[in-house]
């Protein structure tokens, strides 16, 4: 399953990971400012954690960083599929294995010795966040171009439904990032491996 020669994470993975991190920070922070212009869930996001200063600035950041997010995301998916890494690292995966690893993790028994192999919770979490980013891009396309992408618009329900989908997908992404940051703080070797490859 694992190849012990070479880096733990190939260079393309590390580059796309950090580019994605940058894009996500810009997209989320500017997105919060855009949400604040019409806070449909009844609460606003504190301006101090938003990007862009005002609505037009936030929109400019959002519609600039979207190119980075999309291009980088496509490069990541292409490399992942072409190298076969996606099958080696994320599969096999079963609900039973995820539940077993969750139970082990909660009892502090989940080992993190081999950074080359993802446990079932990691596999599920990373596959989830990939799908979530795809959903963010697709719902975002509907918000940007509801008339030009009729099929996507109908898939989301309508324009207003797409706004909710986009926000909730953002919330799921932010929740993932929160857990992801805690885990990398608990296992600093994993953070180093994502920077140095070793």
């Amino acid at each position: 399953m694992t190849d012990d020669s070479g880096p733990i994470h190939p260079l393309w993975l590390r580059v796309t990971h950090w580019m994605n991190a940058l894009a996500v920070v810009i997209m989320v922070m500017s997105g919060w400012r855009i949400y604040d212009a019409d806070p449909f869930f009844g609460f606003i996001i504190p301006k101090s954690v938003t990007l862009g200063g005002w609505l037009a600035g936030a929109l400019q950041w959002h519609f600039a960083a979207m190119w980075l997010l999309a291009a980088n995301g496509l490069a990541y998916l292409a490399c992942n599929v072409a190298s076969g890494r996606v099958w080696r690292k994320f599969f096999p995966l079963s609900a039973r294995a995820v539940m077993a690893d969750v139970r082990a993790a909660l009892r502090g028994l989940l080992k993190h010795d081999d950074l080359r192999a993802y446990n079932a919770v990691q596999r599920a979490a990373y596959l989830f966040v990939i799908a979530d980013c795809v959903l963010l891009v697709l719902s975002g396309l509907v918000l940007w171009k509801p008339v030009q992408f009729p099929l996507l618009r109908e898939l989301m329900g309508d324009y207003e439904a797409a706004r909710r989908v986009h926000f909730l997908a953002m919330a799921a992404l932010v929740a993932f990032v929160g857990v992801h940051l805690v885990m990398s703080a608990l296992v600093p070797r994993a953070l180093l491996a994502m920077i140095r490859g070793r």
Binding site: A21, L22, V25, S48, V49, T50, L51, G52, G53, G57
Partner: peptide
């Protein structure tokens, strides 16, 4: 455009 720079550029500072 680095992450550190970004955090300094939040809010009104950016405009």
């Amino acid at each position: 455009l680095t992450l550190g720079g970004l955090s300094l550029l939040t809010g009104c500072a950016i405009v």
